[in-house]
Nucleic acid binder design. Sequence first.
DNA 1: GGCAATGCTGCTCATATGAGCAGAGGGCAC
DNA 2: GTGCCCTCTGCTCATATGAGCAGCATTGCC
Lengths: 316, 316
Amino acid sequence: MRVDEIDELLSIRAAELYYEENKTQDEIGQALRLTRWKVGRLLAQAKQRGFIRIEILHPRARRLPIERRLREERGLSDAIVVSTAGVHSPEELQQRTAQAAADYLTALRPVPRTLGVSWGRTLFEISQHLRNGWATGVNVVQINGGVSLNRRPGTAAATAVGIAQKGGGSATLLPSPAILERLETKEAIEADRVVAGVIELARSAEAYLFSAGAADHSSVHVESGYLSVADVDLLVQKGAVGDVVGRYIDSDGNIVDPALDARTVGLTLDELRGAPLAIAVMSGPAKHAVADAVVASGLCTVLVTDEATALHLLDG
Amino acid sequence: MRVDEIDELLSIRAAELYYEENKTQDEIGQALRLTRWKVGRLLAQAKQRGFIRIEILHPRARRLPIERRLREERGLSDAIVVSTAGVHSPEELQQRTAQAAADYLTALRPVPRTLGVSWGRTLFEISQHLRNGWATGVNVVQINGGVSLNRRPGTAAATAVGIAQKGGGSATLLPSPAILERLETKEAIEADRVVAGVIELARSAEAYLFSAGAADHSSVHVESGYLSVADVDLLVQKGAVGDVVGRYIDSDGNIVDPALDARTVGLTLDELRGAPLAIAVMSGPAKHAVADAVVASGLCTVLVTDEATALHLLDG
DNA sequence: GGCAATGCTGCTCATATGAGCAGAGGGCAC
DNA sequence: GTGCCCTCTGCTCATATGAGCAGCATTGCC
């Protein structure tokens, strides 16, 4: 048995006594016939070699070292990474991330007077997780079209209104479909005084909160009837990895289909990129690719995500 | 938000800073606007409530608190429980357990002059994991019949010889099948001078090392041809949970089929129960039931097993 | 074989942590 | 409203731990 192998084994024995039996390093020294300094060094070695794993098991637990890496390596101004330790279902992951986003909004200073929001499953969850009185006087404005055509009518409106009401402000909805069939219709809608006013207000928001959709058949755009399954397949063929405020991007963050984009109502991606505070919330394996595109192309300044997605952004 | 909920959240934030960021409790106090004593209490609370999980990730890692519980709650004189943290395959679990058994034997004091061993997959693994010179002058004697009829001829012999050679002693093999078809044959074999001598030697061994088999089709007795699949099914019907030294027992440790038992060559279970040092080595979910029977009926004084099996013995 | 370089050991001293306690504050019964 | 009780707070002091360092052993090199 080599010397470093003996030391490795000793460090495991020491770690067992230290972490599982709550013995002092001195006591361990007596038990293993070592000085307490040697024990301390063995323990440090065990930690450093990665034999000791410390996990915080709690739905609200975050992974600060990963957050730091995201800030440093991906140039984000802030990052919130929820732990996946003890997560049993995809729903739970979604809940944790939404809760973290709600927490982040609540703690945000200075409180934005106007908050631009997108809509979708994630945003709806966030609105549900915000507490009454999370802010006082935060007005909310929709930043992309979202009158649902098919199912779940009103989720988009309920999201914005919910965030606004709980934040002691009012919501301004964008009364337009997300994507129009004809360019002329889209231009006509945007020319409408009310719609133009809402978009103007959206441009002036102090902060944006949005999610991104994966480019697959589960997309809310398919569910809402704006796009067909075939449309999505075509977009994927063209390199789409997902959508942000209804606009489909490739892995570099470029618009995949300019013609489609021109028929999409709401803030443009460049307007979003110019924002001083843009909070993207994304979780789950399906969002890995689009999350990478969002972060790489500077669509967000703050990212709220889960551990696995974060690690994908760093090492994947 | 209730007060204890705030405290819970604070304790998680504190734990993140303490365990992930290596900050001192004082620094955490400054960051969270708390006194360092409050931080200390929050951390203690987080630990006590089970929010902090510390695992030792190493093939040789053991679970000392579980070992203690096994000694105290199941009346074992000693217990070795290997950690399942980071185990990816059933083979790895088997390896870890065999390694732990080899380690235990090596460290055993006083060194037994004669060691009685059974045979099988587990015992073979243990013999493989023992180092040359693990002892000086340990003689090994087989305690149950084991001339393989079908495949892998000689594993039983290789096991005993391997343990003996590496321990600087010699092996005495029991030259008999495990189970005979007729009672008369069994009695004739036991009457043989050589066989009788080996069994006498086995009875005088200072320590025994054995495993147990599950009562299912993967049994070594099926593999070796002593029992048919139908035989095993019948035994299970009669309540068998597994076998020890070839003798099938129910969950109370009683012989399931006395006629079959009478045709089985080797130490009886009562002789094993009388031993001052009987080391049982069992791992894997398939062995849970038989492990329980072995421990409950006092067949072993020392148990080497894995974490999941140990927890089954304690809480299952 | 001599010598330098490297790493390891056991120390001193500074710091971090936990135990235990006095007092403040807040809730509750009367 | 008053007094009691219980809990929680911030302290003192004892203990445990980590940083840094001088001396010693071991290794490798010539």
